[in-house]
Structures are given as structure tokens and as C-alpha cells.
Computed example of a mutant assay.
Amino acid sequence: MGRPTRWVTDTKPGHSQWYIDRFRRLAAEGADLAGEARLLDAIVAPASRILDAGCGTGRVGAALAARGHHVVGVDADPALVESARADHPDLTLLVGDLAELDLPSAGEPEPFDAVVVAGNVMTFVAPGTEEEVLRRIAAHVRPDGPVVVGFGADRGYRLEDFDQHASAVGLRREQRFATWDLRPWQEDADFAVTVLRRPV
């Protein structure tokens, strides 16, 4: 792996286990954890091949798989991937730094129909790697495939920079919403869900 991610440098010891426990508790309580998956499912064809970039505990990938999609999840945190494998043994889950993403070398040579980047992943990658992360992601999606990215607009990664980085790697911004359930975007929104697309 390359430079340490902000998930490592900007969180307290035990953060990964706290995160695992939190989402297991929410799932046990019956919380709705599938909002991101519903959005993706609505914009892709049935049985699509989807990359869950920064898959964390696997909740988004599991919800997509339950809807009939083939999902490959990647996360830099081995503890999160281990918990995701325990909770969702049918998913394909890999440990990897998104700034070095090379899935053909990991036995996944086929391009993806879509990519989802949920859970503030873009604000947790290593500083200065954001454009490279988007470049690597774009290289794994087929032409005309959507890349849907959601993160808090107040978490240190400016939307203007994100838009510039996405454009620089050939991803065209198609839509932006304030939530995963498609509430209208406003400039003062504290969260952004952006639908990018790799042009044909």
C-alpha cells in the first residue's frame, strides 16, 4: 500500500471496530442501510457488475447482491474487509488501496458496469491521492458506466476540487443530489451525491 489513508491517520485507535460494531447494531435494529444500493439499482441494468469502492463493512455491496447484481468490494482496511467477509460470505471482497487499484491483477479482469463510492470514502483517502483514486476507479468502469460518489461537503475535500479531479480523469458530471434518496441539490447542502459517467 501507498501513503496511509486518513482512515488511519485521522481517527482514534479502535475506530475500525467501533465502525463495525455500529453497523452491526444498526442492522440488528432493522435500520435502513440500503439507500445507496437502491439508487444504484435504479440506474443500472439487472445483473450488473458493480464495484463497491471503499466497501467498508459490505452493507452496500450486500444490498446490491440481494438485488441480483454481481459485486466486488475493495477497502484498504483489513479489519473492515474481514468483518464484511464474516457477515456477507457470498461477496467478493478484497483488501486494497484505491489509489493503487488494479483489479485485473487481483483476478477481476472484466470492466464494471458501474461503481459506487459511498460512506465518505473520498474524504478518507490519503491526502493528495483523490485525483488518482478517481483515475483508477474510472479505468475500471466500462464506457458509459456510471460512477456514483457520496460524501460530506464539510469534511475537508471541497466539491470544487472533486469536480476538477473528476473532469481531469475523464468523468463527466451528470447529476448531483443532496442525499442518496435524491433530494434536490442546493449550494448550502452538507452532503453531495454526484452521478458521474465515463463517456463513450
Rank of each mutant, 00 (worst) to 15 (best):
R85S: 10
A86H: 05
D87R: 09
D87I: 00
H88L: 05
P89M: 09
D90Q: 14
L91F: 10
L91Q: 04
L93N: 09
L94K: 14
V95D: 09
G96M: 01
G96N: 11
G96K: 09
D97W: 07
D97E: 04
L98S: 06
L98H: 05
L98A: 08
E100W: 13
E100T: 13
E100R: 13
S105F: 01
A106H: 10
G107Y: 03
E108K: 05
E108M: 08
P109S: 04
E110N: 11
E110S: 11
D113E: 02
D113C: 00
D113S: 06
A114P: 01
A114Y: 02
V115L: 02
V116R: 00
V117F: 04
G119S: 15
G119L: 08
G119M: 11
N120M: 05
N120W: 10
N120G: 07
V121T: 06
M122I: 01
F124S: 12
V125C: 00
V125L: 01
A126Q: 03
A126W: 03
P127I: 01
G128Y: 04
T129Q: 08
T129S: 15
E130I: 01
E131M: 05
E132K: 15
E132A: 15
V133M: 03
L134E: 10
R135G: 09
R135D: 11
R136M: 02
I137L: 08
I137S: 03
I137W: 00
A138C: 12
A139G: 06
R142Q: 11
R142W: 03
R142N: 05
P143L: 12
P143F: 13
D144F: 04
G145P: 04
G145E: 00
P146H: 01
P146S: 02
V147Y: 00
G150F: 01
F151H: 10
G152S: 08
G152W: 06
A153H: 10
D154L: 14
R155Y: 12
G156V: 02
Y157T: 08
Y157H: 09
Y157Q: 01
Y157N: 07
R158G: 15
E160L: 02
F162E: 07
F162H: 14
D163R: 14
Q164L: 15
Q164R: 15
Q164W: 14
Q164E: 15
H165R: 07
H165I: 05
S167C: 12
S167F: 11
A168V: 10
G170R: 15
G170T: 14
G170E: 13
L171F: 11
R172A: 15
R173F: 12
T179E: 04
W180C: 12
D181T: 15
D181Q: 14
P184C: 13
P184T: 15
W185D: 14
Q186F: 14
D188S: 03
D188C: 12
D188T: 12
A189F: 00
A189Q: 03
A189C: 04
D190W: 03
D190L: 11
F191G: 11
F191Q: 03
A192D: 06
A192V: 14
A192T: 13
A192M: 07
V193H: 01
T194M: 08
T194W: 02
V195I: 03
L196G: 07
L196S: 13
L196E: 06
R197T: 13
R197W: 10
R197A: 15
R198A: 11
P199V: 08
